[in-house]
Design a protein around this nucleic acid. Structure first.
Lengths: 203, 203
DNA sequence: TCGCCACGCTACGAAACCGTAGCGCTACCC
DNA sequence: GGGTAGCGCTACGGTTTCGTAGCGTGGCGA
């Protein structure tokens, strides 16, 4: 996936400077966002000469992309046998990352940048698809087990579960805690209609 | 604080230049995002001299805040008597705005900027709260009518409904159409568990 | 008619980044 | 020991933006 792993026999000096630069770039991404990262700042932070950075990456965008790849950590789909457990586990992981991980602070700026740069948009789309995959997997499995309504599209479930977490992270800035995750998951799994009454024929 | 609203007896020249500048700034916000708007670009776009802009707004941030206030359109809570209709109507409005309105393109950049500038964060929080108010109102009304489970927090419902729309707008970039809105609303209202195991008198 | 006030225009110094060039140093390989 | 390759450092010209200052103009009320 990452170039750092794929290239066959790299000069150790190159490998070192690349790693240092990418780490510094990832730090800066979290701190000042996508648009605020400059090559000179990366050079200053990493201790690597600006010229060396330009020797390794042809443009600022390429460096950003590589740095974001460095931050991106793929997740795995749990399989406890109970869809509620699986989904809650994934949502709690996402919630924890959104609250604690420094790279989560770079998400809005990435979304912004991706809205304008086609290359970044491509990377962003690919990355977000990779992140959604485990959720879709869990949902499909639960549908096959008969736990979930097979008529509901997995992508909708994914948006219904992950969307509110991102919403609080980026838009409303309300707390993202276990209680919220539980309430949200219960709402989506069971619905929010009043359980008691309702001889109401729906139209 | 709100200069724009409290204009008692402004010189018409001032009012004109302010309006032109704010309009140009709003346009630029949609096009290049929060971080990309420069005073010089606003001056060029609006035809107003840079010095005049500085005479009216002490800093770039102040101008941005005023411009965003210009774009922000408050919505109203419908009251059809059926919570599904009310919520669907509001979601469709939001979906349409996210897809069509130019200012929706500025949302990620605003979220990004608000994550770093305290003053913008304050404005952003206030604005997003204003946008959530009608949803909360509809939910509370439905709870009082016995349509919705009173134990579910209105803020959770708001996040559950609006969150996925913003999620697709900013993160996953999947389509936001009426079908998605319907599926999402049905999921949250009725839940997504397979209708098999429980003998529910629903359709 | 005379000021006042806000505007537009030009220009300025300062700062930040960009991307590149040249040079010297050091580590490693043959 | 010599050649090669990559790094760090300094410096440069160019661009963009910032925020301010000075000056002239035009409309509007006293």
């Amino acid at each position: 996936m990452t170039d750092a792993c794929a290239l066959p026999a790299w000069d150790p000096r190159v490998a070192r400077s690349r790693a240092v630069v990418l780490a510094a770039c990832a730090e800066l991404l979290s701190e000042v966002g996508f648009g605020g990262v400059t090559i000179e700042a990366v050079a200053a932070r990493s201790g690597v000469a600006k010229t060396t950075i330009y020797r390794q990456w042809p443009s600022r965008a390429e460096l950003m992309i590589d740095a974001f790849r460095t931050m991106a950590t793929p997740s795995v789909a749990p399989d406890t046998g109970d869809v509620a457990c699986d989904l809650e586990q994934m949502m709690l992981t996402l919630a924890r990352d959104l609250v604690n991980e420094p790279w989560s602070r770079a998400i809005p700026s990435l979304a912004d940048a991706a809205a304008r740069d086609p290359e970044l948009a491509r990377l962003h789309a690919q990355f977000s698809r990779e992140c959604r995959t485990p959720v879709v997997e869990v949902v499909v499995r639960a549908q096959n087990r008969g736990e979930l309504d097979p008529d509901v599209a997995p992508d909708v479930v994914c948006a219904a579960l992950a969307g509110p977490l991102f919403f609080r992270h980026m838009v409303s800035h309300e707390p993202i805690d276990a209680a919220f995750v539980s309430a949200l998951l219960a709402s989506v799994l069971n619905g929010i209609r009043a359980p008691r009454p309702a001889p109401e024929p729906r139209t």
